[in-house]
Amino acid sequence: MSPTGMDPAAAVRTAGDALGDAIYRRVIPCLDVTDGRVVKGIEFVDLRDAGDPVELAAFYNAEGADELVFLDITASSDSRKTMLDVIERTSDQLFIPLTVGGGVRATKDMHELLRAGADKVSINTAAIAEPSLIDAGADLFGKQCIVVAIDARREPDGSGWGVYTHGGRRPAGLDAVAWAAEAAKRGAGEILLTSMDRDGTRDGYDLALLEEISRACDVPVIASGGAGNLDHLVEALAPGRADAVLAASIFHFREYRVNEAKRHLAANGIPVRLPR
């Protein structure tokens, strides 16, 4: 008998029946880091040092961010060492999932980042150059550690979306939907999908792209690029689109708080984790 006096099997059934079907969608702030400093620090809260990734990470954790992404936007070898230190300091103080990307070229780089305290590594250009890096990473560390980032841009003739590298300037000669499907098949645990058409526009995520990619892959899709207001997050997280949204500028500049975004999502029927 359980302490409540109910038969254990009945207690398990009762508890299970009380749980809803909803699967939480995630809200993930992304910090661009170079030489150990956040490039766009948040301006609207009173932080001792808004350029310190660790302090910003702590702030976002307190705000209810579900995960954090650090993107090393220079990824020179000096910057990489600094990044390892940032990851160590962050993971020593914070107990939420941390994804790190930028300049990951080999499983050795992945191992370094994971050992420093990252939970997942994001790979982009290197995976395009050498797709077997996805398989190798998944075999060594488990697919849940491997995030494949895809920068997609609509083809001029409207036929679909191409994959681009180097900040959207260089075409990789791949179809984004086919590449996402291949990445998932090879062992990507998640797809981080950035619309280069929408990135920086604040016009909203590319919903058609999200739907195509979500249909083509059986792994979670993280939407990135285009968020300008909280309704954009609602649209992106509707069924059949993204499982998570990545956002930078709407949180870093004066507009929205993460906890405000999550309340807005909940009010619009999107299941999210809220403070209990």
Binding site: A11, Y24, R26, Q144
Partner: peptide, 23 residues
């Protein structure tokens, strides 16, 4: 469902234990 499950989810206590009171 998408596999792996990656993300936050709710745990409900079946009895009084480490998670707190039943329910």
């Amino acid at each position: 469902v998408k596999i792996p499950q990656i993300g936050w989810n709710t745990v409900r206590a079946t009895g009084d234990g480490p998670l707190g009171a039943a329910g």
